[in-house]
Computed example of a mutant assay.
Amino acid sequence: MNVRLPKDEDINIANGEDIARIMRKILLRQNRLHRKREYFWVIGLSNNQDIEYIELIAIGKSNTVNVSPIDVFNLAAAKKCEKIILCHNHPNGNMKPSEADLQLTHRLMQGGELLGIRIIDHIIICEKEDYYSLLDDGFPDELQ
Rank of each mutant, 00 (worst) to 15 (best):
M1S: 13
M1V: 09
M1W: 07
N2D: 14
K7N: 11
K7S: 13
D8R: 03
E9R: 01
D10G: 10
D10Q: 11
D10K: 04
I11A: 07
I11Q: 04
G16W: 06
E17Y: 04
D18K: 01
I19E: 03
A20C: 09
A20W: 01
R21P: 00
R21G: 08
I22A: 03
I26S: 01
N31L: 02
L33G: 09
R35D: 15
R37Y: 07
E38V: 05
F40T: 02
F40P: 05
W41V: 03
V42N: 00
I43M: 07
G44V: 09
N47F: 10
N48T: 10
Q49I: 03
D50L: 07
I51E: 00
I51N: 00
E52S: 11
E52Y: 01
Y53D: 06
Y53C: 10
I57L: 00
A58F: 01
A58W: 00
I59V: 13
G60M: 00
G60R: 01
G60C: 05
S62A: 13
T64D: 12
N66Q: 09
N66I: 12
V67K: 06
S68C: 12
I70M: 10
V72N: 04
N74E: 14
L75P: 01
A77I: 01
A78S: 14
K79I: 12
K79L: 13
C81Q: 02
E82W: 00
K83M: 10
I84F: 07
I84Y: 07
I84K: 02
I85K: 06
H88Q: 11
H88R: 08
H90Q: 06
H90M: 07
P91T: 04
N92A: 12
N94F: 11
P97C: 09
E99M: 08
E99Y: 02
D101N: 15
D101F: 12
L102I: 15
L102Q: 14
L104R: 14
L104P: 01
H106S: 14
R107P: 06
R107C: 13
L108D: 00
M109L: 12
M109H: 07
M109E: 07
Q110C: 13
G112V: 06
E113D: 15
L114Y: 14
L114V: 14
L115G: 11
L115V: 11
L115F: 09
G116S: 14
I119Q: 05
H122R: 07
H122N: 13
I123N: 04
I125C: 03
I125S: 02
I125R: 02
C126W: 02
C126L: 02
E127S: 08
E127Y: 00
E129S: 06
E129L: 05
D130A: 14
Y131P: 00
Y131A: 08
Y131W: 11
L135R: 13
D136C: 11
D136N: 14
D136L: 07
D136K: 08
F139R: 15
P140R: 08
E142M: 06
L143K: 11
Q144T: 11
